[in-house]
């Protein structure tokens, strides 16, 4: 267990030293600020007749969990798997005192933690913008809970990206496949019913089934089953492939 924690720290620190994640974080913050700017501009253009008193933190949640975090998850998984294989640095992880299962798990956990950090950072940025703009701070605790709950489905996204990285030797191809599969799944979620609801990407805004009006227990259980079942299947398949690979 100690080795797993230590290596997760190692892998996370590798990711945090890459400037691109900071750049993506800044872009996320800019989107948040631009959104507020848009509201201010509408009020100005309309001479104050149209004033949007929005809850920016809630509005931004969809962008964070459906666009920003998947992008970061795909990039980070590709950095820690396909890119390291291509750069011939992956074997360094395999020569540490860790089993292959722990190597794969620590890398996946590091990506998951990076995504959680991004979600929390975006919450803080949105909260700061909300305070500066003078908008209402009602429901902040509930919104924070929604941000935290939405970290859960990121596990499935990471598992999907790991699986795709196991199949691809090229980091570019792995990244493109991650994005293409994700868009395809999202298309199914929105436009192909009921099959779309059987795919884990339908539950990226996980808070919707837990916060507010609760679904019947049976429906809740089936959604929990779909999400964690997907994680289990994707992760097991990834490990089977990973365990048999030569480096």
């Amino acid at each position: 267990m100690k080795a797993l924690v230590l290596n997760t720290k190692n892998e996370l620190s590798k990711l945090l030293r890459k400037k691109k994640y900071i750049v993506i974080g800044i872009i996320g913050a800019l989107v948040c600020i631009l959104r507020l700017g848009g509201n201010v501009m509408i009020a100005k253009v309309s001479g104050g007749e149209v004033v949007i008193k929005s809850n920016l933190i809630t509005e931004m949640l969809g962008f964070v969990v459906d666009i920003l975090v998947p992008l970061i998850a795909f990039m980070a998984v590709t950095d820690l798997f396909a890119s390291e294989v291509q750069e011939d640095t992956f074997k360094e992880s395999l020569m540490r005192p860790l089993t292959r299962f722990k190597v794969m798990t620590s890398k996946s956990l590091a990506v998951f933690l990076l995504c959680c950090m991004t979600i929390l950072a975006m919450f803080v940025i949105c909260l700061a913008v909300q305070i500066v703009s003078g908008n209402s701070l009602a429901y902040v605790p509930q919104t924070l809970a929604a941000y935290v709950v939405d970290m859960v489905p990121v596990l499935a996204l990471v598992a999907m990206a790991v699986f795709i990285n196991m199949l691809s030797k090229s980091p570019t191809l792995a990244m493109l496949l991650c994005i293409a599969v994700y868009i395809f799944f999202k298309y199914l979620n929105y436009y192909v019913s009921p099959i779309g609801q059987m795919i884990f990407t339908a539950y990226s805004q996980w808070h919707k089934i837990w916060i507010g009006s609760l679904l019947p227990l049976g429906a809740l259980l089936s959604k929990v089953g779909i999400l964690f079942g997907s994680v289990l299947i994707l992760y097991t398949l990834s490990y089977i492939i990973f365990d048999g690979k030569d480096y």
Binding site: R17, K18, E87, D88, T89, M95
Partner: peptide
């Protein structure tokens, strides 16, 4: 083989 060095 070649040393596994993280360039960043």
């Amino acid at each position: 083989e070649s040393p596994a060095i993280y360039k960043d």
